[in-house]
Simulated assay, not measured.
Amino acid sequence: MQRYFLEEQQIQGDTVEFDKDSERHIRTVMRMQRGDEVIVCVSGSCHIVTLEEGEPLRAVIREKETADREMPVQVTVAQALVKADKLELVLQKGTELGAAAFIPFQAERSIVKTDPKKQDKKLPRWKKIVKEAAEQSGRRLVPAVFNPIGTDNLIRRFGEFDLVLAAYEEQAKIGDKRAFFEAVNELGEGKSVLIIVGPEGGLSAGEAERLSRSGAVMCGLGPRILRTETAPLYMLSALSYHTELSR
């Protein structure tokens, strides 16, 4: 069933009023008519609604959706700034895999640099990508997407999380197979996790030392070297398996 994320003011009692983008999608793309049902979500609460006729498009709430597809742990992805298509892939697929938030950060080896003049256009596009991915994958919540920050500011946020994991290529090269497994194996339901992935050239030795000294667990991700856009998806998949499928 098609899903739409709305604002609180769009629901009054048992009546739902759609915004223009959602209405256009319902009428033009889905070609739905009066009597058809969709799911609307507001602040993590989702309802099955029946479409009515009229301008603007409205619907009536029928019942509350009971299925919950959110991960039992809150995973924030700190992805170093990379080329636009790679970052957008991480946002889209990371949302499908259950990420709760995304924090782009400026790493030493990031080819892409932050440009405040362009950022005002990028952030709305990033938020649109995660919103559409959340609708497609049946999420209850749309992940938060933050403006890019520096590594020092990222480290200052470590205290917000129960566990910080950083993918580090050098750990994989020396055959590390335990750090990621052991850290995740002790992770309980309701905990918060920050996963950190460097840019195309990886984290520098200096960055890795600072992250480790500040409490991050430096992890190898198996015997193969993963691309920057693959690593966070691997980590999210492993966390999903551990917290959702293996229990």
Score class of each variant (00 low, 15 high):
Q9F: 14
I11L: 13
Q12S: 15
Q12H: 14
Q12C: 11
E23W: 06
R27P: 04
R34Y: 10
D36C: 00
V38Q: 02
V38K: 00
V40Y: 03
C41Q: 01
C41N: 00
C41P: 00
V42H: 04
G44P: 09
S45R: 15
S45W: 06
I48G: 07
I48L: 14
T50E: 15
L51V: 01
E52L: 14
G54I: 06
G54R: 11
I61L: 14
E63L: 05
R69D: 11
V73R: 02
T76R: 05
V77K: 00
E88W: 03
V90R: 03
V90I: 15
L91V: 04
Q92M: 01
K93S: 09
K93F: 06
A99G: 02
F102Q: 00
I103A: 01
A107S: 15
R109V: 00
S110M: 04
S110Q: 00
I111Y: 03
T114K: 09
T114E: 12
L123F: 11
L123S: 02
K127Q: 15
K128G: 05
A133D: 01
Q136V: 07
S137K: 09
R139K: 15
V142Y: 07
V145D: 00
N147Q: 12
I155Q: 04
I155D: 06
R156Q: 05
R157E: 14
F158Y: 07
F158N: 04
E160C: 10
D162F: 09
A166Y: 04
D176P: 13
K177N: 13
A179C: 14
F181A: 13
V184W: 03
N185T: 08
L187P: 08
E189P: 07
E189A: 13
G190R: 12
G190A: 05
K191A: 11
L194H: 03
I195L: 07
L203H: 02
R210N: 13
S214G: 12
A216V: 04
V217Q: 11
G220W: 03
R224N: 13
I225M: 12
L226F: 10
A231Y: 06
L233F: 02
Y234V: 10
L236K: 05
A238F: 09
H242C: 10
S246E: 14
